[in-house]
């Protein structure tokens, strides 16, 4: 079996465009999920009345439903209720909704790893609750959390491959289209794999590097 390089070259611009779109949606979705996760973990840590319950319900709902269903709900379900969002907005919200809970759990693990005596030490120099979180807990939690945050980022990036289900021309969608039109299954799937690798490998290497750097700077009491 030989590879049709001519076809690959002609499809390259399509893949490039799709890759940028995938990257853009993933970046915004992941950024939002980090924000949501951080807020949720602080609510859980501080045991903020009322909000704590809401956050727990959100986390269970988000983690125990597939992204595909979440996207369908946002894209088709909300329209029934009179709210129409663009495909891309749905994709970003969907990814953030899913990722937020994973990030929250990762942050929570890190926060809980900060020892009680560290916290008391901060309290005893008069830090307020928020200052304690900002200056003592989060910096230490971050170093512990980083590996799971990184894993979540990669997980979420891969989840973007179902964005095609709500008519977004991401990498997966483009591939399926091309297969349907030209039957160049092998070439298109090959390009798909390479495209994901080009995005994910550098990210993965960067995260490994970052983990090591933070670890050396922060650890050892």
């Amino acid at each position: 079996m030989s590879m049709n390089w001519e076809f690959i070259m002609s499809a390259l611009p399509l893949y490039e465009k799709a890759a940028w779109l995938t990257l853009k949606l993933a970046f915004l979705g992941i950024l939002a999920s980090l924000g949501i996760g951080l807020l949720c973990s602080i609510v859980l840590y501080q045991r903020t009345k009322g909000l704590e319950r809401l956050v727990r319900v959100y986390i269970e709902l988000s983690r125990n439903t597939p992204l595909l269903i979440q996207l369908f709900f946002l894209y088709y379900g909300l329209t029934k209720l009179g709210i129409t969002l663009s495909e891309q907005t749905c994709a970003i919200i969907g990814l953030a909704f899913l990722g937020g809970s994973y990030m929250a759990e990762a942050f929570r693990g890190g926060i809980e790893s900060v020892s009680k005596s560290q916290i008391e030490s901060g309290i005893s120099i008069g830090l307020s609750k928020l200052q304690l979180v900002r200056y003592v807990i989060l910096p230490q939690a971050f170093a512990v959390t980083l590996p799971s945050l990184g894993a979540n980022c990669i997980f979420l990036l891969k989840e973007t491959s179902i964005f095609g289900a709500i008519a977004i021309a991401d990498l997966m969608h483009v591939t399926q289209d091309l297969i349907g039109m030209y039957y160049q299954t092998f070439e298109t799937l090959f390009m798909l794999v390479v495209a994901y690798l080009i995005i994910l490998l550098p990210l993965s290497l960067f995260l490994t590097w970052l983990e090591r750097k933070v670890r050396y700077a922060e650890f050892g009491n």
């Binding site: 560290q118 008391e120 030490s121 901060g122 003592v136």
Partner: peptide, 8 residues
């Protein structure tokens, strides 16, 4: 007892 300086 355990000093508890902030390690970071």
């Amino acid at each position: 007892q355990n000093y508890d300086l902030f390690p970071h």
